[in-house]
Design a protein around this nucleic acid. Structure first.
Ligand code: FES
Ligand code: FES
Lengths: 149, 149
DNA sequence: AACAAAAAAGACCTTTATCTCTTTTTATGT
DNA sequence: ACATAAAAAGAGATAAAGGTCTTTTTTGTT
């Protein structure tokens, strides 16, 4: 479904949302350790996210990555399209050219409702909202693999 | 989500289910044309499916691929695991090590119901049943990209 | 000014997925 | 028997995903 790159990106964004601010920045090495992702690869991803206005960064001592208010207004959908490019969730499950209700493939009825849900949750919800919800539910804890409540 | 290989495999299986029998076999070239898939690649996939008892075949003139009664009792789940191997639908959406209700990631609540549905539809339904349903609903027509009702 | 710490940039490397081509084997019809 | 039509088998080719490493630039601290 999602590429590793997108998964890492989403996880790091949610991590940044809950752990950083304009006054508290974190560097790649730490983020990569916290999320247990390949550090160099994550660096590239954060670079790309920064170039596209989804993450903020400052260089030099005490520098690092963080989310400002503008970044927090973006959606996870923005993250996915920034990294993976393609419109993953509008594609037909069986790889046919178009996916719509008028010309459904055998799997369509099964997948279509899910797509709707993904769209509304990922596209119409800001990262700030998503992170806040995760905090409420306690699901943000599981961003790191080994972390057990 | 699914690899191209799995998608081609599923589509060809459903095609075989509705177009072949012990007495009516179809060769790779025709199947590939009908489904608009790369012929050589599809040949390899059908070979693999045949080796794993999901498809039947006979060589020589008037030979080709087809589904016998035994093949029709398999599930699409069997097809996916035969081709992709990995347990695609039990994996965490964000790539964390385990996916379960006890230790959910931020996306879990959104994805879990879908997984259930996929499992029951793909694992607990025979190919025969799935194909029959598709015929009823008319969705089998859209196996080929350009085919519009 | 010198140093250090961080991201940015760019050049790679490795592995996996996707796809092709050629040769061999097997079955059928004449 | 022979020709032919098909799958089976095996060896590669290409492209994309995943990941690493080194150098450069920027910024803050001493
Ligand atoms: S048409 Fe295949 S999933 Fe919608
Ligand atoms: S834990 Fe991530 S999808 Fe279930």
């Amino acid at each position: 479904m999602l590429s590793n790159a997108s998964k890492y990106a989403i996880r790091s964004i949610l991590y940044l949302a809950t752990h950083t601010s304009e006054t508290k920045k974190i560097n790649v090495k730490v983020i990569a350790e916290e999320l247990e992702t390949p550090p160099s690869f994550l660096a590239k991803l954060l670079q790309q996210l920064t170039n596209n206005g989804l993450v903020s960064s400052t260089k030099g001592p005490n520098g690092g990555f963080y989310l400002d208010e503008k970044n927090r207004k973006k959606s996870l959908w923005d993250v996915i399209t920034c990294i993976d490019g393609t419109d993953k969730f509008n594609q037909c499950f069986l790889g046919l050219s178009e996916c719509n209700d008028r010309n459904p493939c055998p799997a369509h009825a099964m997948v279509a409702p899910f797509k709707e849900k993904i769209l509304t949750n990922f596209r119409d919800k800001t990262i700030a909202e998503f992170a806040a919800e995760s905090l409420e539910k306690g699901t943000y804890l599981t961003l790191k693999q080994t972390e057990i409540l």
